[in-house]
Design a protein around this nucleic acid. Structure first.
Lengths: 135, 135
DNA sequence: AGGAAAAGTGAGAATGATTATCATTATTAG
DNA sequence: CTAATAATGATAATCATTCTCACTTTTCCT
């Protein structure tokens, strides 16, 4: 089990981390950059990318896949699942644990030939606002 | 249930579809472009992108997320699950059905507030070759 | 404290996947 | 057969991300 040591964060990294932790959506690097500018007007975009990468590597945050707007980050590092709107692309947290039987996971990992680390369930469907508009 | 009518495919679209169906990995648009060139040397990259988009919209193939190399496509449109190597990024099919209890799915969809369409389980871990190299 | 080495920073250039544009060519409809 | 329509492909534009590099800040040693 490779646990990467969490180094102490400098103030820039801490500012970025605070933004990600406070966000309830799953912000992109650009959104984080915009948000961090209000508290650190001097920080450059490249630094935000660099810091996000480091934070993810050290386990402070998680990279949670990409969509047409770019890579998205999640301050919730506990295992949890997501719902994706098939109409507008919204990426939502599922606030309950989706229980997948452990033996089903193990069997699947064996069948795929991978050494299982973690897993995630993704639900696809219409988010509330898209569902309302009936499509 | 919105089913998009599958229009008849012209020969270019058919050529692209054949490539995607024959691929056992999950090729990117560029890989598909390279492969289709051998049978249609004249086809342009923009056409490949356009055709892939149409094929996905009509349900012939599926867009299956992005990674650092771009969007990946899957000729297998039946519901199935994937494994992602956390070291090399490989995206593998899981050749068995990962059974998630229907009530767990429904409860999760309700909790997230979405109208459930489909779902996918993603396993994260080390693929065979990365596992071998012990990291 | 003093100063050299290391790490971090930010502005802007470079990269690379995807999309838009548009003149040209194929297809369809009447 | 001809007009309208759709598809095509070359190229340019877009946009997220990464790279580069000169400069600043921090760390570390004595």
């Amino acid at each position: 089990m490779e646990t990467i040591a969490k180094t102490k964060l400098n103030s820039n990294a801490q500012a970025v981390l605070n933004i990600v932790l406070a966000a309830h959506n799953h912000p992109t690097a650009l959104e984080i950059y915009e948000a961090v500018k209000s508290v650190r007007p001097h920080m450059g975009l490249a630094s935000v990318y660099r810091i996000l990468h480091n934070l993810a590597e050290q386990g402070y945050i998680r990279e949670i896949g990409r969509d047409e707007e770019g890579n998205r980050y999640d301050g919730n590092t506990a295992r949890h699942d997501h719902a994706v709107c098939t109409n507008c692309g919204a990426l939502l947290d599922i606030p309950v644990e989706v229980k997948v039987p452990a033996d089903a996971l193990e069997q699947a990992a064996r069948a795929a030939g991978i050494e299982l680390g973690s897993y995630e369930v993704r639900l696809y469907g219409l988010c509330p606002s898209c569902s309302m508009r009936t499509i």
